[in-house]
Amino acid sequence: MSFLHDRLSIEKPIIQAGMAGGITTPELVSAIANTGALGTLGAGYMGASQLKEDIHKVKQLTDKPFAVNLFAVNLESYSNEIGNMQRFLNRFRNNLGIDAGADFVKVNDYLQEKIHVILEENIRVVSTAFGVLPASLVERLKENDVLLIGMATNLDEARELEESGYDAVVAQGYEAGGHRGTFDVGKYPNGSNIGLHVLLEEFLDHLEIPVVAAGGIHHKKQVDALLAMGAEAVQIGTRFLIAKEAGTNAAYRRALLKADTNSTKITKVFSGRPARAIRNKFVKEVEGSGLTPLPFPIQNQMTKDIRGAGKEFAIADMQSLWAGQGVGAIQEEETAVEIVESLTGNVNITEA
């Protein structure tokens, strides 16, 4: 495990997934980093100033390395062809007592500015989703000794990451919660749906760079098995949603603890990209409307106020309850330290 110890400078083979949207608080990231695992700030939807502020907060709480996760795609988008979906979504807004949606949607992109912050703050690890960073940004990061980790859901994507100069790839199985990293959702409308064990074996057989396993992992037995197969580490998201330090709101937490193995499905209704979430009223009604969700990130921006109200009013049925297939195994809230120790047995890489 020299990649983890010598290059990532971590002691435990656990990477906390870069879950965007406020889950990865500085408190969560730093707590995980302090255990010797790799914490990750999910910066996909952040502006540069918010990212800088969160990085400073993490640095106040730990002197250990941590990562920043970015979307590799350009989020800059505009659309005024949203009438049918917006009118349908206004039914939810009316019930929630919030303003009707606008006639157009505009999404800004801050990727260049966030790269500047990452370099300015001397962040050593960057992970990306939804594709490969532009060659100019890869070169800029590599020139500053930043390690790059990319999410992949099939071998073609993994090879593209490797050929572009990434240092490691995450084999992101079908079981994973939230958005998986599928590059081309035109080619794979519901994501590239390959189970983790098959995907990991294929990556290990065909790639030269280290491979990290992700998707439905929630127990030490799984961690041990995946490491025995040849994974350098595992990446975990859902289990950390219920960490006491996470930014997960109370209604979301209750839904996670109530869910079982059959509670999740892949849906586009919240963001326009396929993502695994716990079934709720919003999923059922939008999917049953006959309307096609707008492409990401337009649909994501359109539902943002509804999801925000669901969080504010503690209504789980109006939130995007991202969760992996292992959610049914989560029985209680724990600290980040307790979660990492339960997954590793409190053994460091150098002791294994």
Rank of each mutant, 00 (worst) to 15 (best):
F88H: 12
L70K: 11
L61V: 14
T62K: 09
D109L: 04
I217N: 00
G215Q: 03
T153P: 02
Y78T: 13
A158T: 07
Y110T: 12
I149C: 06
L96S: 05
H56R: 15
E201N: 13
H56Y: 13
Q60H: 15
D6K: 15
D63L: 09
N144V: 07
G195F: 03
Y174L: 12
L70V: 11
G36W: 05
F92P: 05
K281N: 11
V198A: 15
L200Q: 08
T292V: 14
N249P: 11
K12P: 01
Y166M: 04
N190V: 03
Y252S: 07
S79L: 06
D109S: 14
R279A: 08
I115N: 10
I15H: 00
S320R: 07
G44A: 14
L200P: 06
V212E: 00
E113W: 03
I266L: 01
N69V: 07
V29N: 10
I194E: 10
I32T: 10
I32G: 06
A171T: 04
F313H: 14
E351H: 12
A250D: 14
T40N: 13
N193P: 00
F313I: 01
A158R: 07
H116L: 09
G290T: 05
V212C: 02
N346K: 12
G173R: 01
A48M: 09
G165D: 12
V340Y: 03
G173E: 03
V73E: 10
E160I: 02
A171D: 06
A176L: 01
G191Q: 03
D305Y: 00
